[in-house]
């Protein structure tokens, strides 16, 4: 039986992204969203109260006539067993799953799934998706946990660092990571297949792998502060802080991380991430609907592309095999667009 609450819940099933502020544990974000969603779902109107039939004796008959002819009348009374105060709210728990996690120090896009969305969440993260981060760094210090809040270990000079040198180091790191990606992708490098995959950028580590940075770019440089944009796979935020530390060491200096901010997780970008003020059911429903519709269009596009590609492949094959009849028909369909 679908009640209004269940209908609201079905609307909520899916994926959406939130913006996690720094200094907050991801579990707190998840719990806040769960309570807010429960509030929203249970606020939906309740179904009409259930009635039950009760046999009530009619006392006036008993007085006038013999007691053996006591009549009993059926009446329907609202059943208290289904009262909201007795039964409690319809939904008391909600399955809210978290995608790739963010530690307390970092902020940015955090993907959450509700209900059946949880399955999609695991599927999404099994498929190789990269994530974008912006890292804020500062030269001249080293701390025990690589962030600026940690215990200071070392102080260094940074006057010798130029933009050029920094970019050279970043390029070197990107190169070595690229190489690591090739080794972890488990594809024979001397094949045509590997070449094609590498050209399309479809190489992805097979199974578990250490964190890999697929892209590193300097966004802003004003010593001692600098900002990097990073695309990566299988990373943790701690690892990213460490990357900054290593950049500092490569440059004969030291660096600490002042902030980690995830700007993209798969196809979830900052643009659609819900900020703290919007962690309520109506906004989340809107975000989920939007994600569903965008996924549909993406799917449609990819299938179209796939079909076009498939046809092109056929044409090539047919040309090679000399199957002129089939080639003719394929070309016809292409030409007339049917």
């Amino acid at each position: 039986m679908t009640t209004p609450s269940v209908r609201v819940f079905h609307k909520l099933e899916g994926l959406f992204s939130t913006y996690k502020p720094p200094g907050v544990h991801w579990k707190l974000v998840r719990d806040t969203i769960e309570t807010n969603l429960l509030k929203g779902i249970n606020a939906a109107s309740r179904p009409a109260p259930v009635h039950r039939v009760q046999f009530l004796a009619e006392p006036n008959n008993a007085l006038s006539e013999v007691s053996s002819e006591l009549t009993v009348s059926a009446s329907s009374v609202p059943s208290l067993a289904h009262h909201p105060l007795v039964n409690g709210p319809e939904f008391q728990h909600l399955c809210v799953g978290v995608g790739h996690k963010l530690d307390v120090f970092s902020s940015g896009v955090l993907v959450l799934g509700v209900g059946r969305g949880n399955k999609a969440l695991t599927d999404l993260f099994k498929a190789g998706v990269t994530r974008d981060y912006t890292l804020e760094g500062e030269f001249g210090m080293a701390t025990d946990d690589f962030t600026h809040t940690g215990r200071l270990i070392e102080k260094t000079t940074f006057g010798h660092i130029t933009r050029d040198k920094l970019e050279r180091v970043l390029a070197m790191m990107q190169g070595s990571n690229q190489k690591a990606l090739l080794t972890y992708s488990n594809v024979d490098m001397s094949t045509q297949e590997a070449y094609e995959m590498a050209v399309k950028g479809e190489l992805y580590p097979d199974g578990k792998s250490p964190p890999i940075l697929t892209g590193l770019r300097l966004l802003h440089f004003q010593p001692p502060y600098f900002r990097l944009e990073v695309q990566c796979l299988n990373e943790t935020q701690r690892y990213l802080c460490k990357v900054l530390h290593e950049v500092g060491l490569e440059l004969r200096s030291t660096a600490v991380c002042k902030g980690v901010r995830r700007t993209r997780d798969g196809h979830f970008t900052l643009q659609h991430a819900l900020t703290r003020q919007h962690w309520a059911a109506p906004d989340i429903i809107r975000a989920i609907q939007q994600h569903r519709s965008s996924r549909k269009t993406r799917k449609a596009k990819s299938t179209q592309l796939g079909q076009a590609k498939g046809q092109a492949n056929h044409v090539e094959e047919d040309l090679i095999s000399g199957d002129s009849h089939r080639l003719h028909s394929v070309l016809n369909t292409k030409a007339f667009g049917c």
């Binding site: 059943s79 208290l80 067993a81 105060l85 007795v86 409690g88």
Partner: peptide, 17 residues
Amino acid sequence: VNESETLRKLVQLGVQL
């Protein structure tokens, strides 16, 4: 709750049973 007078009255008071 349907049989007990106390519970019925408590529900009417708004007690969250």
